[in-house]
């Protein structure tokens, strides 16, 4: 096979334009003939693609499945963690809300002055008594002012009812 042809085929091979047949020819060439030094580099690259005798480690399958298993384990651990988190989270949320609310309440109470019990104005029960009676009198005066018209009205209503009653059921 002409070296030039090989060069052409290689060019096309690198461009990805070779057919399977042409690739077979290239592979045959690199395998069987003594490769000229100018093509040594290409030979190594080409053969690395087509060499069927790449040793496969005997435990490859085992290693792959072990790797896959380890992925699975990882995921399991993660899901277990998230399960724990899912179980924990409601309590965490509640605890956080309680803390927050009581915190706010504490702040509100802290801000507003503590309710002070109103102090008695009088230390002497007699004075207090007099003031109370005065207040009750004032209250009653005003209350009665409101009640009097009602009572008067009630008297009128009663009178009117009597008249109506007498008119409807005259004494025989």
């Amino acid at each position: 096979m002409q070296i030039e042809e090989i060069h052409k085929l290689l060019d096309r091979f690198y461009k990805g334009e070779t057919s399977l047949d042409e690739e077979k020819r290239l592979s045959d060439f690199f395998r069987q003939e003594i490769v000229p030094t100018s093509l040594e580099e290409d030979s190594r690259v080409f053969l690395s693609f087509y060499d069927q005798n790449v040793p496969i480690p005997s435990d490859l399958e085992q290693r792959i499945s072990a790797l896959i298993d380890s992925f699975d384990d990882d995921r399991k651990m993660k899901s277990e963690k998230s399960k724990v988190r899912r179980l924990l989270s409601p309590f965490l949320v509640v605890a956080a809300s309680v803390l927050l609310v009581f915190g706010i309440r504490f702040l509100v109470q802290y801000d507003s002055p503590q309710p002070v019990l109103m102090a008695d104005t009088y230390q002497n029960p007699n004075d207090a008594y007099r003031a109370t009676m005065h207040a009750l009198q004032l209250f009653s005066d005003n209350f009665e002012k409101g009640m009097q018209p009602i009572e008067k009205a009630a008297v009128h209503v009663e009178k009117t009812q009597k008249i109506i009653h007498q008119t409807i059921y005259p004494k025989q």
């Binding site: 008695d120 104005t121 009088y122």
Partner: peptide
Amino acid sequence: VYISKNMLSL
């Protein structure tokens, strides 16, 4: 004038 329950009870 404030009169408490205690004072009222007196």
